[in-house]
Amino acid sequence: MNKCRTDAKVYVSQNDWIRFFLKDDQNVFGVTLLLMNPIISQSWSLLRLYWALEGKSRQTLSGVFLYVLVIILVTSYIFGAPEPTVWMGIFWVILLFSAVNIGVLSYLQETGGRRLYYMQLVDPLAVYLAKSLYILLLLLMVSILTLLLMAVFHGWPVVQPVFIWFGIGLGCLGLALLFGFLAAIGSQTRSSATLSTVISFPLIIGLMMLAGKIANGGLLTGSTFDLVKMEVLMLVGLDLIIGGLGILLFTYIWRD
């Protein structure tokens, strides 16, 4: 990873930007400049590693997809075509539990030797950023899949999808940043899965309330953006707070 940084220095000093973009093997859609920062380059590599590992085993995604499918089938058996607010409730519950599963599984995979290896090799901050991005990526995929399946089995009561995308985007960002931190805490204890769930649920409620309120705007034809302006601002603030705290505190829970 240091190679990238030194390379960058050399290229910048030569002022040869075209070569810089062409030569770097880590250049993917123009993020090369950002990769000059060691932490971002490390987290980018880690994210690609996580993604490659997931692509190989498909352990997390297949597990969560199966879980989503089962819940949707069971709820459609119970509710049929539910009321719009119930529909929204089912969606957020599915997303919440998927987030827990993804967070716990992502840290469960790396125990013992592999974890020690990461600790020596990369900055803890890079681990946190990569984990959160990875969880965010999987969560977005799961939420799109959930929406598709729910449209098939539960109907589609959404009138203005823009609100749903806003709610999902900001909500998933907060969930990913939160579980990147809390699942790391849980993974250090004896009963990691249960503990991650228990310590994170009370902290999630505020996030879920705000995201749910924004998304609920999509159920009415007359709702405008002004109606949920406060919630959007607060959710952005909450995401920033959670992310900032995670960045500040992750070092202390990661090192041994």
Binding site: I185, L238, I241, Y252
Partner: peptide, 21 residues
Amino acid sequence: RVTSAYNIFAFVTLIPLLFII
């Protein structure tokens, strides 16, 4: 170390729950 970090995290995320919502 970990419980102290959790305590900081918990208190700060508690503020919106108690004072804003």
